[in-house]
Simulated assay, not measured.
Amino acid sequence: MPVLCDLKPSGRYVATDLHRAGGIPQVMKILLAHGVLHGDALTITGQTVTEVLQDVPAEPRKDQEVIRPWNNPIYAQGHLAILKGNLAPEGAVAKTTGFMAHKITGPARVFESEESCMEAILAQKIKPGDVVVIRYEGPKGGPGMREMLSPTSAIIGEGLGDSVGLITDGRFSGATYGMVVGHVAPEAAVGGVIALVNEGDSVTIDAEQGLLQLNVPDEEITRRRAAWQPPAPRYTRGVLAKYAKLVSSASKGAVTD
């Protein structure tokens, strides 16, 4: 998907400039015209997307520079990629801008929490070529899908940003740099395959092919799943315990219906 809007923090303009240039309806009409929106989807008005946008031009106005036409984007590809594979059957999110390598295969370095991973990074136990796995930090496991900015920043601080991968069922911020994959679903707390990764297993992150793979035979994954037991919840009372009990998968928005 191309990047069409020149907006801060990396661009020049702000939301009010976007509004004056045609706003979200203009961006939606460009996407609709190029077949990447479902025009028959219903909106809150009761009309379809196509009906709501019927009077919006298919191309942005020429007297503004905030919204680019489809054939002249800011970037040909956006900064996020959705990865799938046996390690993330419901999907995961990788950030793909700002670094050279978009794929890595290496031994898993497995951590059950953000804190234990931080200790290993600061003790210089993570080496080039490793794939760090931080699990039990998802919507249920965190609970709340904690942000993994500290480990990713520490990896950069150790000079490993271009040589170490990181996979988590937690999340990361817009400031994160490197071969980082978050939002892995299903998460470890519900028995997702990320819970079955062993120290030293071969793991592949390939943003070019959209792949997140545990390079272990299916029979071995089945054996590990049969032996897996969920850890005790971090909270047994209060709002966090209630949240962990009710929250859905990250792939469904981590909602609590």
Rank of each mutant, 00 (worst) to 15 (best):
P231D: 14
G141Y: 08
L83A: 06
V110L: 00
L53W: 14
A227C: 04
A58E: 07
G23E: 03
I44M: 10
T96D: 01
R237P: 01
T48V: 01
G39S: 05
T152L: 13
T256H: 08
V93M: 12
G170E: 04
A76T: 14
S251G: 00
F111Y: 15
Y177H: 12
I74F: 00
L37A: 08
P69H: 09
S248P: 01
R224D: 06
V164Y: 00
V36L: 13
V247R: 15
E199R: 08
I221W: 08
I221Y: 14
G210Q: 03
I194E: 15
H102A: 05
V27L: 14
E187N: 09
F172E: 09
R225Q: 13
A250I: 07
A207I: 01
I194G: 03
Q213L: 10
Q124G: 11
A227M: 14
V14Q: 14
A15P: 00
S248F: 02
L196D: 04
A108Q: 04
Q47T: 03
E158R: 12
P69E: 08
E65S: 07
G210E: 08
R135T: 02
D130L: 09
A227W: 03
S251D: 06
A226S: 12
R109M: 09
G78L: 12
T168I: 05
A101Q: 15
V110W: 02
P9H: 10
D206S: 04
V14P: 04
K252T: 00
A189H: 15
V193N: 15
R109H: 03
I156E: 12
D201C: 07
P60F: 05
L214E: 05
I24L: 15
I156D: 13
R224W: 04
K103M: 11
L53C: 02
A189W: 10
A232M: 10
M148K: 05
G35H: 14
G39V: 01
G129I: 04
A241Y: 02
P9D: 07
V36P: 04
V184M: 13
L212A: 06
K252F: 05
A241H: 05
G11R: 02
A88S: 14
E220V: 09
A175P: 01
S249K: 01
G191Q: 11
S251Q: 01
H183W: 13
S173L: 05
N215D: 15
E112T: 06
I167C: 04
D40S: 08
G78S: 09
G85E: 03
T43H: 07
G182M: 13
L7A: 05
T16C: 13
Y75K: 14
A226K: 15
T105D: 03
A94W: 00
E147T: 12
G142D: 09
D130I: 00
L32P: 02
S173D: 07
A227D: 15
E158S: 03
Q229R: 15
G182V: 11
I134Q: 10
V56Q: 11
T97L: 11
E51T: 06
E187C: 11
A226C: 04
S248C: 05
I155Q: 14
L37Q: 01
T105K: 12
I156C: 09
E65L: 10
T96P: 00
E147K: 13
R109K: 10
E147D: 12
P186M: 07
L212Y: 01
D218K: 09
L18K: 05
Y136Q: 09
